[in-house]
Design a binder for these strands. Sequence first.
DNA 1: CTGTTAGCGCTTTCAC
DNA 2: GTGAAAGCGCTAACAG
Lengths: 330, 330
Amino acid sequence: MTEKPPREGKRPTIADVARAAGVAPAIVSRALSPDRRPVSLEKKERVLKAAAELGYHQNPLARGLATKSIDLVAVIINYLSDLSDLDLFDPLLDAIQSLGKQAILIRVGKTKRIDDFLRNSLTYHVHAALVFSDFADAGEVRDLFHSDNVLMLNGRFDAESAHIHIDEERGINELIHHARGRGVDSAALVTGRASSLVEEARIKAYRSACAAAGVRLLIEIGGDYSYESGTKAALTIAGQLPDAVFCTSDSMAMGVKDSLGRGGRHAPNDYLLYGFDAVDKGNFAAYDISSVGFDRSALIAGILAYLKAPGEFPPAGLEIPTRFMARSTG
Amino acid sequence: MTEKPPREGKRPTIADVARAAGVAPAIVSRALSPDRRPVSLEKKERVLKAAAELGYHQNPLARGLATKSIDLVAVIINYLSDLSDLDLFDPLLDAIQSLGKQAILIRVGKTKRIDDFLRNSLTYHVHAALVFSDFADAGEVRDLFHSDNVLMLNGRFDAESAHIHIDEERGINELIHHARGRGVDSAALVTGRASSLVEEARIKAYRSACAAAGVRLLIEIGGDYSYESGTKAALTIAGQLPDAVFCTSDSMAMGVKDSLGRGGRHAPNDYLLYGFDAVDKGNFAAYDISSVGFDRSALIAGILAYLKAPGEFPPAGLEIPTRFMARSTG
DNA sequence: CTGTTAGCGCTTTCAC
DNA sequence: GTGAAAGCGCTAACAG
């Protein structure tokens, strides 16, 4: 595919195509637009032919400047670190690209001054922002993006903001119910970073479900979702092993399993073990941990619907149910 | 932080700041530039003050159009699916952002017509492209990007292209040597997609290292790097269990371990098991698999150096050695 | 050092 | 349906 721009070293512009096709630049713009715009069929064909011959490709910067829009979707996350991230972001990237858009992945980490590195960046002008990170609430995020197309997926939404909410309560209730049914009387809860609203709600759901079912929560141990923090938490738990250990992430449950296993305590014989996330990619035989999960393709579909027509997204947000998934540890 | 643009509903432009500060637009541009550009200290201060008061933020689209450059780095990958991806891309994102740039993640998948969805996109205009995917060779990639700043990390480099090469041969030689030292005489090799140049080289390295060390390669089984493909491969291997099983990814080794384990065959007693990648995030106790790895921070540092000064990158490319890492399975 | 001018490449009025 | 012209917001080049 050898292409020779008319001017050496420079890429052909719309003006070059116009000259080659013998029409005005505006006609080229219309002919090449995906929308149906008024152009005679004959000229349109001439333009298309000329564009192909010259190897013309639109400059998205110039178009963006003129239209104040850009086919970029910002995906804002805390970290890319968990197995469940793989399950989610790989299909998400695919979905975004299937729309002809591209994803710019913003890893917030523990940055405090997020706006410093957002304000002057392209991110500021994206078509839409998908906020998984809990770094900011809906109002702050709206202020941070030029676009109003902000989809909150971090639980920090308000009346104005589009959002998708994972109904974790339902799955957690099922889980506790299941544990109770297997005779669980006492339990330990291993949690993630409490600074997250989602995590906070998750913890509360465990507490109230336990209370309602009559499961005594002997201890709560703070982790950070990671495998390592699970192994550490288990050290504390081992002292007084409860009937069950609930973890707010699968990775932590894996850590708990290995750590307690080293002390000869094995699930489900010596205790019941429950994780959270129900990762697919990480559903290894050695860690077949009962968990709470949801239909990721439903989430992706919801996001896709939002990206396609943000205006038509249900104002009340979208709700995605979770379900308890029994595996071998509980 | 309430900001009121001079014109209702519109964001302040450089012209607004110039007016407020009583200087010319060009002065504002210079004053706000991160580079040291000729501006009197006094005016610079006036500009900075006015900009702050107006809540001015640069429009990167306009700057990009004028300068033909943009602070965006394209990261081109096949999939985001493996544990080793987490180990690599999380710190990589962090590194890119530490440079004030942002990463646009292109997931090629099995797309054939990659250029269709690249040509008209912003990707075309990025500051640099980091090519992990093996979708194209150096020449094609150069043709695909406006920028000449393409760093090949997929093994498909040529004399002209900047590249970082992971010297896998070294680690593989060490691994085979180690296996041989433990009495391994026969082995099976479980491979990934052979379409990848890196994988092809990896397979060859195993073959020649085995030949050199006197290890008979009884069988080669094609997988796709995934855990599932490892479990499948093990079904074939189980028929005639060799002394060792070499896998070109840790995930496949995990699958092999579980699958053979179900048949009562356990490493390292019944056979030796070796993976490849030496993932950290996925170094779970249940899968403490001997593997080949490299210093990921060295790779990140190399990429960072390239992004900072592509012109000063060693023309011969950068070489990163791998090492065998003995764990409990071999 | 400063300010004016001329674009970057595209889309969008708005007359014709 | 068509095309001239006016920007989008910014920076580079050039005189002053």
